[in-house]
């Protein structure tokens, strides 16, 4: 870990300005990912702006019947919130499928969205990685790629986004609210929030330097049967090989987003019309153009079967 300076922000706009003012600065909230990355010198911020005391830790009803989740709401509290459990079950289930109780107690809503990949080569600073050191190359291509992306990847990077929560938020059409260093706010649909790696895998979201997430809003409840199914090599405390967040309506229609397959939660809305025809009809479209490696081609079969399982469960 490199030496860094530290300050505690007094307001969201001030926090944003403080990060913008200090090149290489980072926000810190729960720190469940950033601190590990700093210890390994994968992240080497010169300055940390602590946002933990900002009053962004409430879950409030919105005017249009949805929920506004403060950026600092802890994963544990969000998963346990009665409104979330009742109306957004897929989100609660996704949260509880991730990490451990201790981590969820610390991890925040915004921080969860900003988790960095768990690609093993990203974690080994002796190995080339375009995400960690732009231009150094991608070790995962041609290397150990079993856990990595099958779609949306590039010749520069085949990393996946590790979040469960974000997959559920994607299927719920969440919106990310931010404040910029100049005090302006904006609302970013989650579909536009995470970027694909393309030629700049180190740039993972559309956030501008210093831009701070203040909340995530969920639209009014969409009802339906809400399922989160996470498939992994052990029963708990592992990242998804494939996950499915789904909302299935009584008429057989619905929505589905996939985790563990791409650089961002993967959802193809146009494919959802095929849902009444079964899983394969959906995944054939969702994964059209997939570029798996030899080691992870099984994820395409697995995604179809997992969605099949989810649909069977939802239809009882």
């Amino acid at each position: 870990m490199r030496t860094f300076t530290y300050e505690r922000a007094k307001s969201p706009a001030e926090a944003a300005a403080a990060v913008a003012r200090n090149p290489g600065a980072r926000f810190i909230a729960g720190g469940t990912n950033l601190l590990d990355l700093m210890k390994l010198e994968i992240e080497t911020p010169a300055h940390l702006v602590d946002v933990n005391r900002l009053e962004l830790d409430r879950i409030e009803a919105t005017k249009d019947g949805g929920l506004r989740i403060g950026a600092l709401v802890r994963n544990t509290d969000l998963a346990a919130d009665k409104r979330v459990r009742k109306d957004y079950g897929v989100l609660s289930r996704a949260l509880l499928a991730g990490a451990s109780g201790q981590l969820r107690n610390k991890a925040t809503t915004a921080g969860n969205l900003l988790q960095r990949t768990r690609c093993p080569y990203f974690y080994d600073t002796a190995q080339p990685c375009n995400k960690r050191t732009p231009g150094s190359g991608c070790s995962a291509i041609g290397g150990f790629s079993r856990p990595l992306a099958v779609i949306g990847s590039s010749d520069q990077c085949i990393a996946t986004h590790p979040s469960d929560m974000a997959v559920a938020m994607r299927v719920l059409d969440a919106v990310v609210e931010t404040v910029r260093p100049n005090g302006e706010t904006r609302a970013i649909p989650i579909a536009d929030f995470h970027r694909l790696p393309e030629k700049t895998p180190a740039v993972e979201t559309v956030l501008a330097p210093g831009e701070l997430i203040t909340a995530v809003t969920l639209p009014a409840p969409v009802g339906g049967k809400q399922v989160y199914r996470k498939v992994r090599d052990r029963a708990s405390y592992a990242f998804a090989l494939v996950s499915v967040a789904a909302v299935v309506q009584p008429d057989g229609g619905g929505r589905a987003a996939f985790g563990g397959v791409a650089h961002r939660p993967w959802r193809v809305e146009a494919a959802e019309a095929a849902m009444p025809r079964g899983a394969k009809a959906v995944t054939d479209q969702v994964f059209a153009g997939a570029r798996p490696t030899e080691q992870n081609a099984f994820k395409l079969v697995l995604a179809e079967r997992t969605l099949g399982s989810v649909l069977a469960e939802a239809r009882g």
Binding site: P120, Y123, D124, F144, R234, A235, S236, Y237
Partner: peptide, 14 residues
């Protein structure tokens, strides 16, 4: 390549 306990999985209680 999987040289940490996130990559090298051992059984958990569950």
């Amino acid at each position: 390549a999987n040289h940490d306990l996130a990559g090298y999985e051992v059984p958990v209680h569950a």
